[in-house]
Design a binder for these strands. Sequence first.
DNA 1: TGATCTTTCGAACGAACGTTCGACCAATTC
DNA 2: GAATTGGTCGAACGTTCGTTCGAAAGATCA
Lengths: 222, 222
Amino acid sequence: MPRAVESEQSSQKLEIILRHAAQVFADKGYEGASIRDISRSSRVSLSGLYYYVKSKQEILYLIQLSTFRTILARLQAALRGVRDPSERLRILVHNHLAYFLEHPTEMKVLAHEDDALEGAYRQEVAEIKRKYYGIAVEIFEALQPAGQARGLNSRVAVLSLFGMMNWIHTWHRPQRDPQAEALSEAMSRMFLHGVMNERSPVARRPLPNTRARETRAARIAV
Amino acid sequence: MPRAVESEQSSQKLEIILRHAAQVFADKGYEGASIRDISRSSRVSLSGLYYYVKSKQEILYLIQLSTFRTILARLQAALRGVRDPSERLRILVHNHLAYFLEHPTEMKVLAHEDDALEGAYRQEVAEIKRKYYGIAVEIFEALQPAGQARGLNSRVAVLSLFGMMNWIHTWHRPQRDPQAEALSEAMSRMFLHGVMNERSPVARRPLPNTRARETRAARIAV
DNA sequence: TGATCTTTCGAACGAACGTTCGACCAATTC
DNA sequence: GAATTGGTCGAACGTTCGTTCGAAAGATCA
């Protein structure tokens, strides 16, 4: 019989399986990875896996769902009480990148296996993704009434930002590249003010001295 | 016997095969696609494919190699004679995005199947990629002596730019989203000057009137 | 017409795939 | 101590995979 209501032990073992599965999917891709790979790496027999999980698709679904739920919940918590649009954007970027660097395997699976799910699984994940995206659009558009944002297509701007952030799974090496703090500061700054040195950057928060120079974290060594 | 020196006809048929293969890889991913899928869609028998091609890996290799070579050659041609760093960056972005939107299937295969190649195939493609990346870094760093670029990690800045651009394969819908001109103008502008409205944008070229407003193409409807 | 070379393909190879089944073991309940 | 329950797994299922092989059909030139 398949697992019906999970005991403490049981759901703990499911988590182990999902953790190893995420690693395997990240290494070989969803299609390139086999259930046997997951069985070997998690030390659960091939048939034993099916006590915890209905199918290979469900494994991917469970990984994506829980990862996305966590990152969304963290974002909502971090945003609570913050009103300034620029600051909210910085929080979004930091939350996204910090989670990315803490859980690189799960996030790679999220970013790279976007098309692999089908049917109801796909739709359920898409729903969370829409919500996450919607928050980003709201934040972006709130930059405008303040008379700050250029006349830019929100969709293009926000998806470009996600592109910057999600692409890091292809290049970021923890030893070599900046960590979450510096990286999110750099990307927020690039997104908000660009790479060029027009006059002076806007200060992080409205300060007496509007011409404050950039923070240390943003000035990454070349 | 496998094809040795290709005749006119023969290499033409190889191109047909590669075009269909790119479509199949783009739809199902490299691992998810089968040689039989490619056989079916290109109307060449399963064994017939192996007259033109040594292996499934070689198919992917040939697609990636020729796509990358073309985009690199076009970039070098478009850059010839242009000295202004900002303008060179705009050319790079436009070249990349224009090719992306003209050949979405090949570019999706390039962006998405980055890890799929192995051994010598992988290295040969990596070499071109390094060259392409190197040009981008050069352009970016040339923004600095002019006293224009912020103290930003080149690697982070350039790879963020590639992230913006390459990510479009996940979201761009030709009917709905801006075309190459408007899109590259928007992304160049975002990268160079950001999304916020600090004072005034810098003019495209050094003009008498440094405070010229943005061009029409950049003001995309929301 | 016959010889040679290029191109095509049906049939089969062994290996690997996702999934299922029924037997089994250990612990808990009566 | 018999029955029940939660967890485990070896063996096998039918299918699909990438690749090979040898025969044969078409083209080219003697």
